[in-house]
């Protein structure tokens, strides 16, 4: 009996080692980001060696034309690719519902390709393709390529939401004589809109983040921020890299929080 009693005292929800491992993982995930933020205020020009507090690298960043051009390019490409990929993703999500088996298998293998195939493969393939059909390297081509790999990310939340939708409003609308277009405009799209927003956000994040594809197919005046940062990391690693990174972290944070607030309000 006594053994049963001691057993009862153990809380099953606390497997041994789970808590310390969890804290370690969280620490591991965040300590590099904390390091970047802290060292962006380093006065030394060596990014790894702390001297004393200074905001000079932020000052330098704000006066760095190349960095600002790169940021603008990233945003331009990001917005264009987000809009294009979201529209194409909505169309695909709706069209694929009633697509025949063979067609949808083909479609899904294309949509899934960017998720499965290594980015470097698609990047050099795209470079070869552009070279073969004489698409000039630059922002236009980058938007084309970014849109392609953003589509699956924009599509995922939309498809998930479609699967959860209740049939009732659609049947009711149909019974009341609404035609296909009316149902689409008045019921389907409004019900899907939160998912469309999350899909678009996801696509934007993926595009802004992209390094490998942009590296291979960027052209005159179309260097994006990750390509620019990579160049900096390769040559002179000053805390300016940390300062730019911190600003980007801040930007990601703002986007995330605003989307969270937006979602809350909608509920």
């Amino acid at each position: 009996m006594s053994s049963v009693k001691t057993r009862k005292l153990v809380n099953l929800r606390n497997f041994p080692t789970f808590r310390p491992v969890s804290w370690f993982v969280l620490f591991f995930l965040y300590i590099p980001l904390v390091h970047v933020i802290v060292y962006s205020f380093n006065s030394s020009r060596i990014a790894t060696i702390w001297e004393h507090f200074s905001t000079k690298w932020y000052f330098k960043t704000f006066h760095n034309d190349d960095m600002q051009r790169a940021l603008k390019n990233s945003l331009k490409i990001g917005f264009a690719a987000t809009i294009l990929s979201t529209v194409l993703a909505v169309l695909a999500a709706l069209g694929l519902v009633r697509m025949r088996r063979l067609g949808s298998a083909f479609a899904w293998s294309l949509i899934g390709a960017p998720l499965i195939i290594a980015e470097i493969v698609l990047a050099v393939g795209t470079l070869g393709f552009f070279m073969a059909v004489h698409i000039p390297l630059g922002i236009f081509g980058m938007v084309l390529a970014h849109t392609a790999f953003c589509i699956p990310f924009a599509l995922l939340p939309i498809r998930a939401r479609l699967g959860q939708l209740d049939v009732a409003p659609f049947e009711a609308a149909a019974d009341l004589g609404a035609n296909e277009r009316q149902i689409l405009r008045r019921i389907t799209l409004p019900l899907l809109s939160p998912a469309i927003v999350s899909g678009a956000l996801l696509a934007f994040a993926i595009s802004i983040d992209d390094f490998i594809t942009s590296f291979f197919i960027s052209g005159p005046g179309s260097t994006t921020l990750p390509v620019y940062i990579f160049g900096m990391i390769r040559s002179t690693v000053t805390p300016e890299v940390d300062a730019i990174s911190t600003l980007l972290l801040l930007f990601s944070g703002i986007v995330l929080i605003s989307s969270y607030v937006l979602n809350r309000r909608r509920r």
Binding site: L127, F130, M131, H134, I135, P136, L137, G138, G219, P220
Partner: peptide, 11 residues
């Protein structure tokens, strides 16, 4: 060279 040969006209 890769950029120029892949048709980066604009530099």
């Amino acid at each position: 060279l890769a950029k120029l040969q892949s048709g980066a006209t604009g530099y």
